[in-house]
Each structure stands twice: as C-alpha cells, then as structure tokens.
Amino acid sequence: MADSNVLLRVEHLCKDFPVDKGFLAKHSKNARYVHAVNDVSFDIAAGETFGLVGESGCGKSTTGRCIMRLTEPTGGKVLFEGKNIAEMDKKALKSMRREMQFIFQDPYASLNPRMTIGEIISEPMVIHNTVPDKAERIDFVRELLDTVGLNPEHINRYPHEFSGGQRQRVGIARAFALRPKLIICDEPVSALDVSIQAQVLNLLTDLQKEFGTAYLFIAHDLSVVQHISDRVAVMYLGNMMEFSDWKTLYNEPCHPYTQSLLSAVPIPDPDIQGKRERIILRGDPPSPIDPPSGCPFHTRCPIAQAKCSQEKPELREVLPNHYCACHFAEPNPIKESSIEL
C-alpha cells in the first residue's frame, strides 16, 4: 500500500451525523448518530482511477464530500500529498482546492442558472487568479469548451439552454479549468441517459490520458466503474468491504457482498445469463443509526456464522493487493459470478 507516488491517502475516515437537532439533544448521553462513514481507509496514486461502489446510502458520496471538506469529517485523516486536509485552515484549504476538484451527480443542480457557461467555467480561474487577463481567460474557456466537446460559440449561453449531457460536459470543463491533480467524480453519469453515459465516460478517460489526472470515481453501477477504474473498492453501510484492482475484483470477488452485487450485473449473453445463479440478498440494509454488531453485513450474508455477529472483521489481505473484510472470505468461492471481460 505504501507507494511513493501516493496522491491521496484516506486513513480511518469517519463521519457521524447527529440525528437529533438542538443543544440539549446533541449533548445528552444517548444522542443518536447516523454512522455514514465508518473507519474507511484507502489511497489513490497519481493518475489512477479509483472506483468506489456501493448501494444508495452506503456513505460513498459522504466519503467523497469529506475528502473535499464539503462535509466536515468527524474522525480520521485525509492526506493530500502528505498534508492533512481535515486540519487545514481556510487559506491552506483554498490552495489545496486548486489541486482537487469535484464533479457533481446532478448536472441540473450543479450549474448556477444565473451565470453563462463562460462565467461558470472561468470562475475557478477568477477565484485562484490563475489567468488574470480577461481576454486570455475567454480564450482559455473556449479552448476548454472545445476540449469537452461543446461549441465554443456557446460561451455566452445559459445552462438551461443545454441538455443534461452537455451540462455535465460544462461541469467537467469547470473541474479541469485549474488542471487539478485529483477529481472526485460523484456519480457523474448516473443522472444521464445510458446513450450519453458512455460518451461522458469516454470524455473523462480521454481527459485523464491528456492531463494525467487521478479520479476518485463514485458510482452505484458496477458496469460503469468497471469501464473506467484501475482499482475498485466496495462499501456497505459506511464500511469498506473489499478492495482490489478491478480485474481481480470482478473475476475473483472474495466478499459475499461483492459476489452478490456482481451476480446482479447482467451479462450480455443469454446462455451464460440463463445458467448462472443469482445471489439474492434477504431484507433491506440495516439502519446506519443502529448498525448491527460485528460484521455490518452479517444480517444479510448467505454465509454468516455465529462469529460474524460478535466480532467485526478487519480488512485483511486475502490475496496480494486484494483486501477483504470478512472472516470467511476466500477467493472466488462462487464460480458463476465471474464475468467475461
């Protein structure tokens, strides 16, 4: 794990949201919390794409927001190039934000409807004063628009004149305006039509090749993550369950949760799809206010045993560079779950 070109290292990140509002409730002994992110650790190397998957409400977006300090983490460290973001003051945070950008899920809500796309894309350059000359800035915005596949002539248009896919391209152009080293993509394609998703993913891949940017790619769709990621981590109920490079994870998932997720991804071959066994999980995910004891997944796990409800499994290296938080994890115990890639 210790790599010399580690760009971002997240150590034991925690985020609890208080359930009850108000001074008295917050300070009472039995104050309740939503444990959105629970002791999550991982690292991202420069230029790589790290996929973070999990179902809705598992804390993957909160993890992304905590890294960016859009949400204040309640515990743990976020080291960006060795400096702890969680402890930065306003000034340090501002200069850090030059290196780290965010792409939002909803292309309709993430662009200010009262600004032209030219103003939106040049805003990061104005804030950080990277291109002080106005004419130069406009040229740069036009260039960026061309880079993300939009017509530079539309620089003076407003967001409501564009489609969802085009708006997301504007969001991408804004994120790349400062040439950051890391971009956190919070489900950047899940609000788009399937036909547009691939175009936007291709654009992100091309931009990565050109600028060498690292991505933290958050998604709930395994097939989207597979398309773009170097390494993939699976989250469940605020906990990291498994992580590995994507080939290993997709071919030899160790954790029963990963296995069940992968078995739900359709395979575009009716013969294989018809034959393979789907692992269907029982029940709903438990409430993050009152997470289960021991392994968070034991309430729905097909191979759970008595130990699972008592002892919380640590992330352990089951195979070289393949980490899994399960007492009984073994590489690829369910053969049918492998996917032709």
Partner: peptide
C-alpha cells in the same frame, strides 16, 4: 443546490458565494 457546493469546492469565499451564487438566485 449543488452549484453552491461547487463554488465552495472551487475555493470561493463566503462573500463571493453569497453575492454571485446565492443572492442572484
């Protein structure tokens, strides 16, 4: 709205967020 978060992620100051993003909307 996400665009307010987006502005914060860009490093915009409170004054800028209020005058350029929140106030006009």
């Amino acid at each position: 709205n996400d665009y307010v978060d987006a502005a914060r992620a860009l490093g915009a100051s409170d004054v800028r967020i209020i005058t350029r993003h929140i106030f006009p909307n």
